[in-house]
Amino acid sequence: DVEPGKFYKGVVTRIEKYGAFINLNEQVRGLLRPRDMISLRLENLNVGDEIIVQAIDVRPEKREIDFKYIP
């Protein structure tokens, strides 16, 4: 289970104008929005990159997770 405030290693699987989709595993995916990136820009991410993200909002009923990147 993903818990708000905890850090997780994930893989960038898709990049859109509104953010990057990060997979923690095959069943768990969330969104990293540009506003939640500190010292990292969306255009510097590539599909396949491994990054450490912090879960900031977890909505299991909608199967949605918002992430934050903190270097």
Results as ranks from 00 to 15, higher is better:
Tyr8Ser: 01
Lys17Asn: 13
Asn46Asp: 11
Arg41Val: 12
Pro60Tyr: 09
Ile56Glu: 03
Glu43Lys: 12
Tyr8Leu: 02
Glu16Gln: 08
Lys9Ser: 10
Leu24Pro: 00
Val28Gln: 10
Gly10His: 00
Leu40Ile: 13
Lys17Val: 14
Val2Cys: 04
Asn23Trp: 10
Glu61Gly: 13
Lys62Tyr: 09
Gln54Thr: 08
Asn23Met: 12
Asn23Lys: 13
Lys6Pro: 03
Val11Cys: 08
Ser39His: 14
Arg63Glu: 11
Leu24Ile: 13
Arg29Phe: 12
Ser39Val: 09
Tyr8Thr: 01
Pro60Cys: 06
Pro4Tyr: 10
Arg41Cys: 09
Phe7Met: 09
Met37Cys: 05
Gly10Tyr: 01
Pro71Phe: 05
Arg29Leu: 10
Glu26Ser: 15
Met37Gly: 03
Gly10Lys: 00
Tyr8Asn: 00
Tyr8Met: 02
Lys17Tyr: 14
Gly5Met: 09
Ile70Phe: 12
Asp36Ala: 05
Glu50His: 15
Arg41Asp: 11
Thr13Val: 11
Glu16Ile: 08
Arg14Thr: 08
Arg35Trp: 08
Ile15Asp: 00
Asn23Leu: 08
Tyr69Gln: 07
Val53Ala: 02
Arg33Glu: 02
Leu24Ala: 01
Asn44Leu: 11
Val47Pro: 06
Tyr18Ala: 05
Asn44Gly: 10
Asn44Glu: 15
Val12Pro: 00
Gly19Thr: 02
Gly30Cys: 04
Gly30Ser: 01
Ile22Trp: 02
Phe21Cys: 05
Arg33Trp: 03
Glu3Leu: 14
Ala55Tyr: 03
Ile56Ala: 10
Arg59Asp: 08
Leu40Val: 09
Ala55Asn: 01
Arg41Met: 12
Ile52Asp: 05
Lys62Glu: 09
Asp49Asn: 05
Val53Ser: 00
Asp1Thr: 14
Val53Lys: 00
Glu64Trp: 14
Val58Trp: 08
Ile56Lys: 12
Glu61Gln: 12
Glu64Phe: 14
Asn46Phe: 15
Gly10Glu: 00
Phe21Pro: 00
Asn44Cys: 13
Arg33His: 05
Asp49Gln: 13
Arg33Ser: 05
Leu45His: 01
Thr13Gly: 07
Lys9Gly: 05
Tyr8Gln: 01
Lys62Trp: 08
Ile52Leu: 12
Lys6Cys: 10
Ile56His: 08
Lys6Ala: 09
Leu42Pro: 06
Phe21Asp: 02
Arg29His: 11
Arg14Tyr: 07
Gly10Cys: 04
Tyr69Leu: 06
Leu40Phe: 05
Phe67Arg: 01
Arg35Ala: 12
Val58Cys: 04
Glu50Phe: 15
Pro60His: 10
Lys6Val: 09
Leu32Asp: 01
Asn46Leu: 14
Pro4Ala: 14
Met37Asp: 03
Ile15Lys: 07
Val11Gln: 08
Asp49Gly: 04
Arg63His: 14
Glu61Val: 10
Leu40Tyr: 04
Asp36Trp: 08
Met37Asn: 05
Glu3Lys: 14
Ala20His: 01
Asn44Arg: 08
Val28Lys: 05
